[in-house]
Design a protein around this nucleic acid. Structure first.
Lengths: 147, 147
DNA sequence: TATTGTTATACTCTATAACTATA
DNA sequence: TATAGTTATAGAGTATAACAATA
């Protein structure tokens, strides 16, 4: 992450967005660190909870990463017994990643920690404003081209 | 910039913020490129318009960059005749950066281009929602610690 | 020929360390 | 001693290229 300065009076929207993203990312990272995972770990565990077992190529696509970038991600999780890898019997090129019971438990705790950080982050807003913020961001994501 | 995937149904706030930031950044960068500058150039030109002449250390602080990172930034702008550097007479360690008339003109156009990109980005929202979004982001920035 | 996973390499953006010149 | 600016170097985080195994 780059830097995170206090904001001047008239700040372009792009800086407001960066500041919000940076600060929530840091708050979440601190919360997740207590459970031994980072944001990418959580993203992978979450993807696996939905659709495991998942080949690495599928996980990479799900996380929006190159398959070469994803390659190292399961290593640490496997060392900690949170995921398992095995060759697919149908297509022996594929490495299927799956959650272990410990992985499911870690995911549950990490998700709680992340949600709590998100809630604390939004605490400065009243409920209506927070809901409007999220709806607006969703709409912007839907309305602008991914690339 | 990392990646920019379409968003799934239930997306954490941090991903919504990243997506919004990524897409507005790209839209702005494309608009600025037509004027031969990037976001950092614009940030420096804007800082200079307010407070020039500014020593590089001051500009670095203003932009939230290390002075070593800022060091190369004025080079390109100087080559294009948009800023000038001169030694401070009072403290000959300081390199004062100042806008040229061409720099002021470029800044005006670049700011217009950026504002237009911002307006296009927000076009998916009605006016009230856009105003609430910006107010909410400001409040979050004010309520969360910079570091 | 094409795809999966791995490794080596490169690129971008940032910071830290070391230097010169000034104070 | 301390600070301003520069350069060299290192570190994250990402991608591209090349490879072996498999389809």
């Amino acid at each position: 992450m780059p830097r995170d300065e206090p904001l001047a009076a008239d700040v372009p929207l792009v800086h407001l967005l960066r500041t919000a993203h940076t600060r929530l990312t840091r708050a979440s990272a601190e919360a997740l660190a207590r459970h031994g995972v980072d944001a990418q770990d959580l993203a992978l565990l979450t993807a696996l909870a939905d659709t495991a077992p998942l080949p690495q190529s599928g996980a990479a696509h799900h996380l929006g990463l190159d398959r070469t970038t994803l390659s190292a991600l399961p290593d640490g999780l496997e060392d900690h017994g949170l995921v398992r890898r095995r060759r697919s019997p149908e297509d022996r090129r594929r490495n299927l990643i799956d959650l272990t019971p410990a992985g499911r438990e870690c995911l549950r705790r990490a998700q709680d920690a992340h949600r709590a950080a998100e809630t604390r982050f939004l605490a400065a807003l009243d409920e209506d404003t927070a809901a409007t913020l999220i709806r607006a961001l969703r709409r912007l994501a839907a309305a602008t081209p991914p690339h």
